[in-house]
Amino acid sequence: MFEKFKELLKEEMRCERKELPKGIKMQVESFNLWYGKTQAIKSVNMDLKENKITAIIGPSGCGKSTLIRGLNRMNDTISSVKTEGKVWLDGFNIYDSTTDCVDVRRQVGMVFQKPNPFPFSIADNIYYGCEVNGMKVEKDEVVERCLKQSALWDEVKDRLDENALSLSGGQQQRLCIARALATEPEVILMDEPCSALDPIATAKIEDLIDELKNHYTVVIVTHNMQQAARVSDYTAYMYLGELIEFGDTTQIFENPQENSTEKYITGRFG
């Protein structure tokens, strides 16, 4: 009763709502971000389609990581960051003053550039998200579900109690993906998830990403254009903090509208 009341109150307190067009999971609306006085993201508008893979490409330092971290408010951990603009998730603005960024991060999972499993057992790594969010779930079930979804189950099912650091780099990265799935997110953000891995491990992760889009909306940052072309449905090209071009992956790669995009993907700079 009380819980329900709190829930209602919370809903009411979200002052702003927006009905997103059908098939769009997240919408970035004139988003600006500053590190101290330097502006790293300049007025970006972008739609992220549900159950599709969106790739963000661009030369290094152009703000890809900053933008993707803006999608689950990870930038809040850096004290010098100021933001402006809105990011809609299912009709709610995640930057609304009444939104709790901890809730946002549960719904929008994230995988980082360098595999960063906790120095716990494999099972504990996966259960961690459920534990901190107070989710009432069966640990064994969650562990099995997530490991199967991340195609790691067969490799580790006999050693769930072993320290996660004993896994190889590629396995660690898939474990990090599995860990992100445990909190039942709707969107998964990946910031150059393969850049620290060898080609075979990379191929496995790419297959996995392709699987994931059946259940999740995926955003992936990559500096590897072949990878973007291989895995993504939509591609965004960024340069110096601005979103230069956004569209169908085939269109971006075969028929870019902007000069700068074409230069970048044909490898003439970057």
């Binding site: 991060r105 549960r106 999972g109 994230m110 360098k114 906790f118 120095p119 961690y128 969010n133 860990r179």
Partner: peptide
């Protein structure tokens, strides 16, 4: 490593957790 803090925060843990 700061990575581990980020990983935890990204899973929806609070700072104290």
């Amino acid at each position: 490593p700061g990575d581990l803090r980020d990983a935890s925060l990204a899973l929806g843990a609070s700072k104290w957790q």
